[in-house]
Computed example of a mutant assay.
Amino acid sequence: MLMKQIIDAYEVLDSAYVTGKKVEEYLRTIQPDADITVYELKGPKGTTDMLKVRIPGSNGKIKGGSAPTIGLLGRLGGIGARPERIGFVSDGDGALAAVALAAKLLDMQNKGDVLDGDVFISTHICPNAPTAPHDPVPFMGSPVEMSQVNREEVSDELDAILSVDTTKGNRVINTRGFAISPTVKEGYILRTSEDLLDLMQITTGRLPYVFPLATQDITPYGNDLHHLNSVLQPCTATNAPVVGVAITAETMVPGCATGASHASDVEEAARFMLEAAKAFGRGQCKFYDEEEYARIQKLYGPMKHLQTLGEE
């Protein structure tokens, strides 16, 4: 359970003065020698602080092992929209989940529970991001471009990615809690992972929710197409399989709304991601069927052009 970490992380993040360094300081109270990197990233509308945490596994690549590496990415525009809005905004739940996951995994290591594979956790910390118009409700904007964040977070070391993002500004996911996407890989929307569906049922005690994807949702921002949100944007920058973890609501909630975060929902999503990381490192969780993927490529060819901005 991650409720303590969710509450502790929220207290750190819910501040007009929060920085990446302050989040790093919080994480180092758990494990002083943790592998944490924080640096400023400049974009066209301001700056944000990138936060990266690498947690070595007992048989991970960092130690020369062979277990696969999973990336747990907290996607968002910003954790605050100051001065327009006062306080932590709904859009910040992706960062909240990522920071809580880092705190939990570091605490687990202190207590002797080490995952098999390495875990890479990343998000960014911006308490004063701009807002942006979007249909049906306003989005949170970001001081940096999505392509910049992709370059910072997505690397060849990642064998699979779970991307968590607040996804409440729509009419297609009408439940509170979280939902997962089908697996996306190199421009293909593949079958939803049965292993992830099993883990979702186990961690929630309910039937799983899967949210629909349109082709434009898996294309890069900047092509003037409508996107559900940024939850699948990592898939535009990697060959690894990507699954979106959408923190959801029954009603449409603007990303810039305050007082709209539900600790139990964020905790549930983070706990699911933790269990997926455990299973993936042990080879007990497949994001896609390799043979079927080879077959679909043979039949229909590559779809990597959907990872680009396309051609006019």
Rank of each mutant, 00 (worst) to 15 (best):
Y26W: 11
G46E: 03
Y26N: 10
T47R: 05
R28N: 13
K22V: 14
T48N: 04
Y39M: 02
K22N: 13
K21T: 13
T47M: 07
T47D: 07
I36M: 08
K22T: 12
V23S: 11
L41V: 05
L27D: 06
I30D: 10
E24R: 12
Q31M: 11
K45T: 08
L51D: 01
V38Q: 02
T48Q: 02
E25Y: 12
I30W: 07
L51G: 02
K42N: 05
T37L: 09
K52V: 13
G46L: 00
D35P: 06
P44Y: 11
D49C: 08
Q31T: 12
A34Q: 09
V53E: 06
G20H: 01
V23H: 09
M50Y: 07
G43Y: 10
V53T: 05
Y26P: 12
P44D: 12
Q31A: 14
R54N: 15
D35E: 15
K22P: 01
G43R: 06
K21P: 00
L41S: 02
P32S: 13
Y39I: 00
T47G: 02
K52C: 13
K22F: 10
Q31R: 13
V53I: 15
V38I: 07
K21R: 12
K21W: 06
K42A: 10
R28C: 08
K22D: 12
V23N: 07
E40V: 03
I36E: 08
D33F: 13
K22H: 14
T37M: 12
L51V: 13
T47S: 14
Y26Q: 06
R54G: 06
D35G: 03
E25C: 04
G20E: 01
D33Y: 10
T48V: 06
G43T: 05
P32G: 03
I30S: 04
T48E: 00
L41A: 03
E40Y: 00
V38H: 07
Y26C: 08
K42Y: 04
Y26E: 14
G46C: 02
E25K: 14
K52I: 14
K22W: 11
K22I: 15
L51E: 02
D35R: 13
G20A: 02
V23M: 10
V38R: 04
T47Y: 09
T47P: 02
T48Y: 00
M50D: 01
L27H: 02
L41Q: 01
T47H: 05
T48S: 11
L27C: 08
T29E: 15
T37F: 09
I30V: 15
E25G: 03
A34M: 10
P44K: 03
G43E: 04
P32Q: 09
R54I: 12
L27Q: 06
M50N: 14
G20M: 02
D33S: 10
D49W: 07
E24M: 14
A34P: 10
V23F: 06
P44V: 11
I30A: 10
G46H: 01
Y26D: 12
L27F: 08
L41G: 00
P32L: 03
G20W: 01
V23C: 11
D33V: 06
D33C: 08
V23D: 07
T47C: 05
G43V: 02
G20I: 00
D49H: 15
E25P: 05
E40L: 00
E25A: 13
A34H: 09
A34N: 11
D35V: 07
P32N: 11
E24P: 08
V38G: 02
